[in-house]
Simulated assay, not measured.
Amino acid sequence: MPKSPTRSPRIEDLVLRDLAVPEDGPEAGDHREGERYSSTSFDGLDLGGISFSECLFEGTSFNETQLRGARFRECRFTELFAPVFTAARSTWRNVRLEGTRWGSAELYDSTLESVRISGGKLDFLNLRSSTLTDVDISDCIIGDLDLTGVKGARVALRNCRVNTLTLSGGRLRDVDLRTTEFRALNGPDGLGGVTIDSYQLALLAPILAENLGLRVEG
C-alpha cells in the first residue's frame, strides 16, 4: 500500500484590527489585548507569565527580557530583535514572526501551534521538549536548531539553511525538511516521521551508516 503524502502545516488566518497604542507599559502577569507596539524596547524587563492577545509588535526589542511562561495568541511580530531571547515554557498560538533576529533563543518546554516564522536569522534556537503543531519555518538562516525530545506534527522547514540540526528522542509526524540545507545532523535516531529528498539522503548516508554500524568499502 502506498504511503500517504506528507501533510503540510495548517496555518490559520490572522487579521488584526482596531489596535490601540498602550498608555502604560506591560508588567509580569498582565493580560494585554488589541495593542500595537512600534519601536518599543522591552529589554531587561521581567514579563514572566504575561499574556498578549491580538497584538502587533513592529521593530520591537526583547533582549534579555524574562518571558518564562508567557502566552502569545493571534499576534504578529515584524523585525523582532533579541540577542538573548528567554521564553521557556511559553505558548504561541496563531502567531507570525517575520524578519526575526535572535541570537540565543530559549524556547524549551514550549507549545507552538499554527505558527509561521519567515525570513529571519537565528543563531541558536532551543526547542527541546516542546510541542510543535502546524509550524512553518521558511527562508531562515539558523545556526543550531535543537529539537531534542520534541513532539511535532505537520512541521515544515522550507528554503532554510541550518548549520547543525539535533533531533534526538523526538516523536515526529509529517515533518518536512525538503528544500532545507543542513551541514550537520545530531541524533539520526530521531529521523522517524521526517521527509527528506533524495539529495539529502545521499548527504546523510555516511551519518546513517555510522549510526547503524555499517562499514562501506570499495
Rank of each mutant, 00 (worst) to 15 (best):
M1W: 10
S4N: 13
P5W: 00
P5Q: 10
P5A: 08
I11P: 04
I11V: 08
E12G: 08
D13G: 10
L14W: 04
E23Y: 05
H31S: 13
E33M: 07
E33I: 09
E35T: 08
Y37F: 15
S39Y: 12
F42L: 03
D43T: 11
G44A: 01
G44L: 03
L45R: 15
D46A: 09
L47D: 05
G48D: 11
G49V: 06
I50P: 03
S51Q: 13
F52G: 05
S53H: 14
E54N: 14
F57Q: 03
F57C: 06
G59Q: 09
S61K: 08
F62S: 01
N63T: 10
L67H: 02
L67W: 00
R68F: 07
A70N: 05
F72T: 06
R73T: 10
R73K: 13
E74W: 05
E74C: 11
L80K: 08
P83G: 00
V84C: 09
T86P: 02
T86A: 10
A88G: 13
R89A: 12
S90Y: 01
T91I: 12
T91G: 00
T91R: 13
L97W: 08
R101T: 13
S104F: 11
A105L: 03
E106H: 11
Y108N: 12
L112M: 15
E113Q: 14
E113G: 10
S114D: 08
S118E: 12
S118W: 08
K121G: 11
L122E: 01
F124D: 13
L125I: 11
L125V: 12
N126I: 04
S129R: 13
T133N: 14
V135R: 04
I137V: 15
D139K: 14
I141W: 10
I142R: 02
G143R: 00
G152R: 06
A156T: 14
L157S: 07
R158S: 13
N159V: 11
T164F: 02
L167E: 04
S168N: 11
S168K: 10
G169C: 05
G170L: 05
D174N: 15
D176H: 07
T179Q: 07
E181Q: 15
F182Q: 04
F182L: 07
N186C: 07
N186K: 14
S198P: 05
Y199K: 15
L201D: 03
A205Y: 09
A209P: 04
N211C: 11
L212H: 09
L214I: 11
